[in-house]
């Protein structure tokens, strides 16, 4: 039932992208998303696609895995984009039924939006495919560090997240074992109406909760015994390092951002005849 779930879908290969500082990847993703929202023309979008294709190639992750992440929410993306067809104004009227007016600009905008959303999902997928949840936690902790100045216990949040990640596979195994044990005793989780199915979860949930509480209790003792006493005076062993790869990545991003800004300014001038179709107003 839960056997094939691999959390975060991390794809374990060695690559340039895998070895980037997770902070660079996280900030890079944010920059990429901002760029997509700033972009005003299909030229910029093509540039974004180019960067995406380049990153996928050097990441060593099969393109199929990246596309798979889009498949699940494709319907949602299509629906959101389609909605814009009906509510986007413009000058080139295409069809009209009563109050509903469809403009060419609307269709162009819908296509533009669709690509924008697909790129965002794909870029996020590349992040989770190439970064372990653990390094993401480290990145969050490092990036949120300034908050400690206003007495936010960032370290405690990071520890909570790290422990949660640590126990996901353990509790998943446990859930599997409980499901199997109750199945062996004739429990049926796959048939019956919704109420029956919800009731069938009780024999899984109760042992799972009890086990989680027991584990928490023992973990607390083990942490105490290993001198844990809160966040004060703690040192940190792992330090994220900004290396030459990260410098390269930042450079690529900088070129991308500069490209988008330039394209935004000069988009209409590139091919004036096609401008109404290529540039989003």
């Amino acid at each position: 039932m839960l056997k094939d779930v691999t959390f975060g879908q991390y794809y374990p290969v060695e690559s340039f992208v895998h070895r980037l500082d997770p902070r660079v990847k996280l900030l890079g993703l944010i920059a990429y998303i901002v760029m997509l929202f700033v972009a005003k023309s299909f030229y910029s979008l093509a540039l974004g696609a180019l960067v995406l294709a380049f990153v996928i190639t050097v990441s060593g992750v099969p393109a199929k895995s990246v596309f798979r992440s889009v498949r699940g929410i494709l319907f949602l993306l299509a629906f959101t984009s389609l909605l814009n067809v009906f509510f986007h104004g413009g000058e080139m009227l295409l069809a009209e039924w009563g109050i509903i007016k469809i403009y060419v600009e609307g269709i162009i905008f819908a296509i533009f939006l669709m690509f924008r959303l697909v790129f965002i999902v794909m870029a996020s997928a590349i992040l989770t495919l190439t970064t372990t949840p653990v390094s993401l936690t480290d990145a969050f902790e490092s990036l949120l560090f300034p908050l400690t100045l206003i007495k936010v216990p960032v370290h405690v949040f990071a520890l909570i997240m790290s422990i949660a990640l640590r126990f996901i596979p353990t509790l998943m195994d446990e859930t599997n074992r409980i499901i199997n044990a109750q199945k062996a005793r004739g429990a049926d989780f796959e048939s019956g109406n919704i109420f029956k199915r919800v009731r069938a979860i009780v024999p899984i949930l109760i042992p799972l909760i009890i086990s989680a509480l027991r584990r928490a209790d023992e973990l607390g003792d083990a942490m105490d015994a290993r001198c844990y006493s809160g966040a004060t005076k703690r040192t940190k062993y792992k330090k994220l390092r900004f290396g030459w790869r990260d410098a390269v990545a930042v450079l690529v991003l900088a070129v991308l951002i500069a490209g988008v800004i330039l394209l935004n300014i000069y988009a209409a001038a590139i091919w004036p005849a096609a401008a109404p179709y290529m540039v989003i107003s």
């Binding site: 653990v134 990640l165 640590r166 023992e218 973990l219 083990a222 015994a225």
Partner: peptide, 13 residues
């Protein structure tokens, strides 16, 4: 102290 259940003593992945 080293406790009984190795799974319940580890904080990191």
């Amino acid at each position: 102290i080293v406790f009984q259940n190795p799974d319940n003593q580890m904080v990191a992945s």
